[in-house]
């Protein structure tokens, strides 16, 4: 059966089983064994390059050899399930957290999470952008019921490690002479995209708390009141200006009037 042959071939490529299917031995240039090895090397090489493309900071942090080692291990456990290789590697952060040889780099899973968010932000749909001319038409009495929509490229991540500083220190053109103290306290990172450029910014705890509520669909009035309960210094105007400039809102609707 063709499907059995294909399944067998996949096992040979992915798991290195020796080929059980019938091979046409008439081709003189390669033996079947060599041909399978070439195919397998291409398979792994492509998936390695897909991971390297999505996780350039992780790669710099651990070095090329270790990244390759890690990628090879990951690839044996996760097959590509999509024809688009840009969708490969979502599970890497979680996987690194359980990967013994990388355990000493406690911040690495969070850096990988941030990089996947950046990768997704880069390839996210353009969506609509908040139209301020439309927003201007909303009656001030309705401001409390505004529901701001998240742009598909916007992500907020929390980490116990300085992942924003780590990410920024590994961008092209950044100084190689950086000093990062892992004990500098937890951070909230904002991933956003403006004009096809992905940005990573550190949010204040108040801004992060507010934005997470907004992203959950909470109305402007409720989100602001709840944020002020915990963060009396929250400055709504400053937060709105900064977040609108970062292109994190896709539009708005008016929630049910209370």
């Amino acid at each position: 059966m063709l499907s059995d042959d294909l399944a067998g071939f996949a096992r040979t490529i992915v798991h290195g089983e020796s080929p059980a299917f019938r091979v046409d031995e008439g081709y003189a240039k390669y033996s079947a064994q060599v041909a399978v090895e070439v195919y397998r090397n291409n398979y792994r090489g492509n998936l390695h390059d897909a991971l390297a493309g999505a996780y350039p900071v992780v790669k710099q942090l651990v070095g090329d050899d270790f990244f390759r080692f890690m990628a090879r291990k990951f690839i044996t456990q996760y097959v590509s399930r999509d024809a688009n290789l840009h969708r490969y590697g979502a599970e890497l952060a979680e996987w690194i957290a359980a990967f013994e040889p990388a355990k000493q780099l406690a911040y690495l899973p969070d850096v990988a999470r941030l990089e996947w968010a950046c990768h997704c932000a880069y390839f996210a749909h353009d969506g609509v952008v908040l139209n301020l001319n439309e927003l201007e038409k909303v009656a001030p009495a309705d401001y409390g019921n505004l529901v701001l929509h998240r742009h598909p490229s916007c992500h907020v991540l929390h980490s116990d490690y300085p992942i924003v500083a780590l990410w920024q220190a590994h961008q092209p053109g950044a100084s190689e002479d950086f000093r990062i103290d892992l004990d500098s306290g937890p951070v909230d990172a904002l991933v956003s995209r403006n004009n096809d450029v992905v940005a990573v910014t550190e949010l204040t705890p108040a801004d992060a708390a507010w934005l997470l509520k907004i992203q959950a669909g909470t109305t402007l009035g409720e989100a602001t009141a709840e944020t002020l309960d915990h963060h009396p210094d929250f400055d709504l105007l400053r937060a709105l200006q900064m977040l609108v400039a970062q292109n994190v809102f896709a539009g708005f609707t008016l929630g049910a009037t209370s």
Binding site: L61, V62, G63, D65, F66, P101, L105, L166, L182
Partner: peptide
Amino acid sequence: AVPKGTCDKIAG
């Protein structure tokens, strides 16, 4: 396998 990248430069 030992990481040999810029992780050496991070304090702690």
